[in-house]
Amino acid sequence: MQEESRIALLIDADNCPASKIELMLDELAKYGVTNIRRAYGNWKSTSLNGWADKVHEFAIQPVQQFAYTKGKNATDSAMIIDAMDLLYTQRLDGFCLASSDSDFTPLVMRIRANGLKVYGFGEKKTPMPFVNACSRFLYLENLITESPDDSAAPSAKPERVSSKALRGDSRITSLLRNAVEACVGEDDNWASLSSVGSHISNQTPFDPRNYGYKKLGDLIEATGLFDTERRGSHLYLRDKRSKGKGSAAA
Rank of each mutant, 00 (worst) to 15 (best):
P205G: 07
D207L: 02
D207H: 14
D207R: 04
P208V: 11
P208D: 05
P208C: 04
R209A: 13
R209I: 01
R209Q: 15
R209D: 00
N210F: 06
Y211W: 13
Y213R: 05
K214E: 13
K214G: 00
K215G: 00
K215T: 13
L216I: 04
L216H: 02
D218L: 04
L219F: 08
L219C: 03
A222P: 04
A222Q: 10
A222M: 10
G224E: 08
G224W: 10
G224D: 10
L225E: 13
L225T: 09
F226E: 09
F226W: 06
F226L: 09
D227S: 02
D227E: 14
T228Y: 04
E229W: 15
E229I: 00
R230I: 06
R230K: 15
R230A: 11
R231D: 06
G232L: 11
S233P: 10
S233H: 12
S233M: 07
H234T: 15
Y236Q: 03
Y236C: 04
Y236G: 04
L237Y: 11
R238F: 04
R238K: 12
D239N: 11
D239E: 10
K240Y: 05
K240I: 10
S242H: 10
S242N: 14
K243R: 13
K243A: 13
K243L: 13
G244K: 08
K245S: 12
G246K: 07
G246R: 03
G246F: 03
